[in-house]
């Protein structure tokens, strides 16, 4: 059944890819939960900043990310997230599949590649 509500469909898509967006952010370097939440919320990839924490907790249980404690100038030590080797492999796997998936959808939707980027 086709969902008439595009917002709902995009929401489901977003939930499906946000885990890998977190892995992609951590690929650039270790991340502090607060900053990861702000970045993803600003990119409208999460509904609320608080949702990042159960997500990070799940990624840690799955062994895709790990945590390290760092001293902070602004108070108690902070927990930083880092990508594990499994996380890196999962990210690479997703990237290649995502490129194919995106290309297929763009083709079927009749979106030329250069116009397919959302402003």
């Amino acid at each position: 059944m086709v969902d008439n509500n595009a917002g709902h469909t995009i929401g489901q898509l977003r939930r499906g890819v946000v885990d890998h967006c977190v892995l992609a952010l951590l690929k650039k370097g270790e991340g502090y939960g607060f900053d990861l939440a702000k970045t993803l919320a600003h990119a409208q990839l999460i509904a609320g900043e608080g949702t990042i924490y159960p997500l990070l907790s799940r990624l840690r249980r799955e062994g895709l990310v790990d945590t390290q404690w760092r001293e902070s100038d602004q108070g108690p030590p902070r927990r930083y997230y880092v990508l594990t080797e499994s996380g890196e492999a999962a990210l690479e796997n997703f990237r290649s599949q995502w490129a194919r998936f995106k290309q297929s959808v763009d083709t079927v939707m009749g979106l030329p590649e250069e116009d397919s980027h959302v402003e």
Binding site: E49, G50, T51, P54
Partner: peptide, 14 residues
């Protein structure tokens, strides 16, 4: 408010 509603955090927690 920026943290989102309890329901979405709950949903994300599975």
């Amino acid at each position: 408010e920026s943290l989102g509603d309890y329901e979405s955090i709950r949903r994300e927690a599975g």
